[in-house]
Design a protein around this nucleic acid. Structure first.
Lengths: 205, 205
DNA sequence: TTTTTTAATGAACAATGTTCTAAAAAAAAA
DNA sequence: TTTTTTTTTAGAACATTGTTCATTAAAAAA
């Protein structure tokens, strides 16, 4: 009893190819247009095989969402080159925005779409650890800023939520196509300008 | 040629009942779960009849979205009781947040969901006038603030986009269920607190 | 009354996520 | 090696979905 090494490896391989194909199709055509049959056809398996590896479509995209968080963290790590926590905080925001603009579909999946959260709700222990860890990291940097007197002291949780909300808002208006449609300047430019204004507002006065 | 008064009235009536039913089901069960057949059954018509009044499902929800904007404007009008433009701006933000928290599904439809924008894209002249008018109104209030020296002078468009983004971000993290899942305090409370911090940041220093 | 226009329907299509039963393949036991 | 058991895969099927189209019913115009 117990599966042989090779069998385990094979299972993992097909699982990975499901994920890779799902991600590829998702980035190409979006969530709705990425069908189970589509994925199955591409990896040359029947649709039902996919359900041996994932409970449903939501779980597939929850997994892609988790991997995308690993990528975001890789992006954010670059902020640690700054010794001054205020510089790091600004870098954090800028990188976050950059990630969102370079990977709009992934950002959508991570922070807007319902699929991954729906899967989370299906689990008993429905904790969004990916989001929690990223938010805690942001909080720690902001805490440093306050501690060094670079930002006026306020409730850490609320301030962190505000800062997250601001960058989130900046990019989501664009990602969900509300910006272009009201005759605004180039999205990337206006997002950058707005973020600059925001960062100036943030520094202690 | 030409339809009789009564016929026109009847057509408008069924159109309205389609919209009313669609909205009711939408608020109750969401966009995906609101099916054409569902709506048809409730108004005692066949599904195909609905397509005599609307091109597709997106157009129905684009129309509901437009009506929701009229409601939002009614909300926002209350801000004009303030003579001081800074007070008005803050009231504007607070009312905007209130509207979003009291009507999360409508807010979602107006500012997050793809359906209304998809319908807009199908039209040749794809201008989101509802959004543009609301944004222009916000801009005018902010312009007053700058003019009276209540807010530091900056690029009006970018600042307006920033302020919109911030309140939009505050409420969308909650609406798309990213807030609850990271062990945050009660959404309404933290949104209020964050907005208060933001409004303090805004006033000129 | 007859003709023409308008309104409404019912059946049908292609596609979706998902499930379930049966077959094929591989591994374990004899 | 042969038999039995377990695992993997597939295929057909289900219920639903948005949408279209030919046909019928109803109303208006002639």
């Amino acid at each position: 009893m117990g599966l042989s090494e090779r069998r385990i490896r094979e299972r993992l391989d097909t699982r990975q190819s499901i994920l890779a194909t799902a991600r590829e199709l998702f980035l190409l055509k979006g969530f709705e247009a990425t069908t189970i049959r589509n994925i199955a056809e591409k990896i040359e398996y029947s649709p039902s095989t996919i359900y041996q590896h994932f409970k449903d479509k939501n779980e597939i995209f929850y997994t892609i969402h988790s991997e995308a968080f690993a990528e975001l963290v890789r992006y954010l790590n670059a902020s640690e080159m700054h010794k001054n926590p205020m510089d790091q905080l600004i870098a954090l925001g800028q990188i976050y925005i950059q990630f969102a603009l370079e990977n709009p579909e992934l950002y959508d999946l991570m922070f807007i779409m319902e699929a991954p959260i729906d899967f989370l709700n299906y689990l008993e222990d429905a904790n969004w650890i990916e989001g929690k860890m990223a938010f805690d990291y942001l909080k720690s940097v902001i805490a440093n800023c306050i501690q060094q007197g670079l930002i006026k002291e306020t409730d850490l949780e609320s301030l962190s939520y505000l800062i997250w909300s601001t960058v989130h808002g900046l990019v989501t208006i664009s990602i969900r196509k509300r910006g272009l449609k009201i005759g605004l300047s180039d999205p990337d430019t206006i997002i950058q300008r707005s973020f600059t204004i925001f960062s100036h507002l943030l520094v202690k006065s």
